[in-house]
């Protein structure tokens, strides 16, 4: 089985966000970058699929040199090959999708894993875009996956419940928390990854369909009225009369 997993390199969730000089992006000084948390589920599922059916797992990331850290981590976890589509330019999700789908076309992938979303821009789109660009089916937000022969049965989360979705290979799966328990890189894996090369390629550019005009910090001004344990009655009254929330 030919398996591809797409991964992103994102600021750590603890990062303090400051707007940079250009007023459109975050100030990157002192930002700690990590493998996008949802992509750990994607990598784990890719490896489990390989363990079951044999084959190869290729990790792809589009971004600057620093994305190599997350690609390196994926190699240490057990991915066979890593490709960096090296690019520093401003892109929207669709242009990232177009560039990555061109690369995926070279690999005849049977199944392509994504995280459900990146925790930087909360796009929640890339996997779906790429499926459509490759004319294959997609199941997003998957919490359970079963593959038998060519048949793929997934369970995914929807508002207030779950849904069973059936499709077939080739397809795209986007991973939600709960799909699996991601493994950690082993010492052996880390050693082995050191000798693996990360292949670099230059992706094509595409017109921007969505453009950022400005970035701001939310005001988040809160009343911060604090009550003591014996003031429940007062609090409830204020919530009813002043805040009018019930």
């Amino acid at each position: 089985m030919k398996i591809v997993v797409c991964i992103n390199h994102t600021p750590d969730t603890e990062t303090k966000v400051n707007v940079s000089q250009d007023g459109k992006s975050i100030d990157k000084t002192n930002v700690n970058w990590i493998l996008n948390p949802y992509d750990e589920f994607a990598i784990e599922e890719a490896l489990k699929t390989k363990e079951k059916f044999g084959g190869e797992v290729i990790a792809i990331s589009l971004g600057n040199e620093s994305h190599k850290e997350s690609l390196r981590k994926s190699l240490a976890i057990g991915v066979d090959k890593a490709i960096l589509l090296k690019d520093e330019s401003e892109r929207d999700s669709i242009s990232v999708a177009k560039a990555i789908s061109e690369e995926i076309k070279n690999h005849n992938a049977d199944i392509i894993f994504f995280g459900k979303q990146s925790i930087d821009y909360y796009g929640e789109q890339l996997g779906i875009y790429i499926a459509e660009l490759l004319s294959i089916s997609v199941v997003s937000n998957v919490v359970k996956l079963e593959i038998t022969d060519k048949k793929v049965v997934c369970e995914r989360e929807i508002e207030g419940g779950k849904e069973v979705v059936e499709t077939s290979i080739p397809c795209v799966i986007t991973a939600q928390k709960g799909l699996n328990e991601p493994r950690y890189p082993s010492l052996k894996g880390i050693m082995a990854s050191k000798s693996k090369q990360i292949e670099e390629k230059i992706p094509n550019k595409f017109d921007l369909l969505v453009e950022t005009i400005s970035m701001t910090k939310p005001s988040n001004e809160r009343k911060r009225k604090i009550f003591e344990e014996n003031q429940v009655t007062e609090l409830v009254k204020i919530l009813h009369e002043e805040a009018k929330v019930f």
Partner: peptide, 10 residues
């Protein structure tokens, strides 16, 4: 975006 720590206009 960024876990609600920032807003962007697009």
């Amino acid at each position: 975006i960024y876990s609600g720590k920032s807003l962007i206009d697009v």
